[in-house]
Each structure stands twice: as C-alpha cells, then as structure tokens.
C-alpha cells in the first residue's frame, strides 16, 4: 500500500528518499498554503497510525522543537495527519545526510559538521527535549553546514519502544546504557550517540564491533556494559573525546552537547592548522 502512495494531505510526492526507522521519507512539492519559496520539502510518513493522544503529544513536541529555533536543526514546516496517518514536512537537503556524504568530505568538514549537529542537539536540550535518535543518517547537509533532523518521534507515539525491525542490531550502538536500563533520554544519552556518530564518521567503523552478530537480547545486555574499540586512525585527542562520550557512567561524558561541540571544534582547528602547514 505504501509503495503506491503518491501523496498525503496536500503534498504531492515526487520520489521516495528512503526508509527511516519509523517511517518513509518522500521528496514532495509543498502546498501553496505554506508560502514556501523552496521547490521541495522532505515529507516523512510514519508507519504507525495514531489517534488523538498521539497527535496531541506529537503537536506538543513539535511546538517545543520549533521553539528551539536553531540554525543547526532541520526546520519543520508543517505536520498533521490524514486518516490517522501522521506526516511532517521539513527542509529538503539536495546533498543528503552525513551517512550518505561521508566519503566526499574532508576530516575538517566532518568535524565541523558534527560540531554543528551538537549545537543543534544542545538547542533542543535547552528547551527540554532530548533528540533520542542522533545518528549520521539524521544529520542533513546544507551548503557546508549540517543540521540535525528527524526528531525521535516514534517514542512519543509509542513510549517504551526501543528499536524497530527496520534497524539492525547495530543501530542499538547509539543507545546509552542508562537508556537501556530504563532512564529517560536526556543530554547525556544524546552526547553518547554524538560520540558514537563522531567515531563512525571519522573512520567508517563502529566503536562497538562486539555488537556484530549478537541477538537482540544479547545486544541489549552487551550495551549495558559495552566494550569500546577505538579505531587506530583516530588521533589521540579524537579517541579521548569518543571514549569519554561512550563512558558507561554518564557523569564521565562531556556534560552538555555544547561542551562536546567546543571540543570537536578544537579538533577541527587542529586538523586545519596541520592542513595549512602541509599545503
């Protein structure tokens, strides 16, 4: 049924952009009522049908997201439902996500992008929201800057849900141990996921290779006390930052996403100064 979708509400779909964890993204033409100059928007259609409680929670969450108003957050233009199927429309990136574009970026740009993302996450934290789904495929590239998108709305609609069939066991790598133990997501759990993302962006490998091939149950247990393997291609200071972010005790991590951003910017400056000397 989903494959044959051509529209939702007054959005006309042009192409499927891909499957997210909890829904499908489409490139779409925005309706005139939004008054946008951009030719396209990204529309996410959630798999789960919902009901009034779900709409209320989602509308509240999106209003708070809107209040965060950071240049490092993907802008959400519109949200709603048609016959219980929830959708939202956001900025469309021609260049895609950091997951798609990683190979074409220099180390310094990668670091600057992750710092941008961390600033976006920090803006959310300052209005009381945790993102809950920080990962490379949710970091969108726009003209040399990166914006954090795709707020983890699924857990608003389905509180308690931890993972979906769409994601491999590997996607559990972004879940902080305290979140698995049942604590609410917060600054520290997003910082954990920022560290995991930083590592895989820099070297293309997971910082938790031990997750490979585990059953879901074993993967959850593994992530309560994960064994960290930092890739040798990371510099000593990069490795230190990643290791601090993925510390089991949240008190050992950078205390805010903003602090993480500042540290990453220092790493970027270091890389740039080396590049400047060699060129």
């Amino acid at each position: 049924m989903r494959r044959s979708m051509t529209r939702i509400a007054d959005y006309e779909f042009l192409e499927e952009l891909g499957e997210g964890n909890y829904g499908v993204f489409w490139r779409a033409r925005p309706p005139a009522r939004l008054g946008l100059t951009a030719p396209y928007v990204a529309v996410k259609v959630l798999h789960h049908r919902s009901h009034q409680q779900g709409y209320d929670r989602m509308a509240n969450e999106l209003r708070v997201y809107h209040a965060a108003a950071s240049p490092h957050l993907v802008q959400i233009y519109d949200a709603g439902h048609e016959d219980g199927t929830i959708f939202y429309a956001s900025e469309f990136s021609e260049t895609g996500s950091l997951a798609q574009a990683a190979n074409s970026l220099t180390r310094s740009v990668k670091l600057r992008c992750i710092a941008d993302i961390a600033r976006g996450a920090h803006a959310l934290h300052e209005v009381g929201l945790a993102h809950r789904d920080v990962k490379l495929s949710n970091m969108m590239l726009f003209d040399g800057t990166a914006k954090l998108g795709d707020l983890g709305l699924a857990q608003i609609l389905n509180p308690g849900q931890q993972s979906t069939g769409m994601g491999s066991v590997g996607s559990l790598a972004h879940l902080a141990p305290e979140t698995i133990r049942g604590e609410k997501a917060g600054r520290a759990s997003d910082v954990f996921a920022l560290g995991v993302s930083l590592h895989s962006l820099l070297c293309g490998a997971s910082v938790f290779p031990g997750l490979d091939g585990l059953s879901l149950r074993d993967a959850f247990v593994f992530m309560l006390q994960p064994t960290t393997v930092i890739h040798p291609s990371l510099s000593e200071s990069e490795a230190r930052l990643v290791a601090a972010c993925v510390a089991v005790d949240s008190a050992d991590r950078p205390s805010t996403a903003d602090e993480f951003a500042r540290k990453v910017e220092l790493l970027a400056s270091a890389v740039e100064s080396v590049d400047g000397q060699t060129s």
């Binding site: 997201y65 209040a67 959400i76 519109d78 709603g80 209005v127 917060g186 008190a251 805010t256």
Partner: peptide, 27 residues
C-alpha cells in the same frame, strides 16, 4: 472530500520551556 488536519506548530509557547537537567540521575 478527503480531509486531513495539520497541527499548529509555529505559534509561541505559553510557558518558557525548561531545559533538561544537566546530569541524569542513575538508575
């Protein structure tokens, strides 16, 4: 007729949102 609803998400919040606590308390 097909109907849909949009959520109003752009209006200012009535209450200043509270930031998240700095360090989450351990289980």
């Amino acid at each position: 007729a097909r109907t849909f609803e949009v959520f109003t998400i752009t209006e200012p919040l009535e209450n200043e949102p509270a930031p998240l606590p700095m360090v989450s308390e351990s289980f």
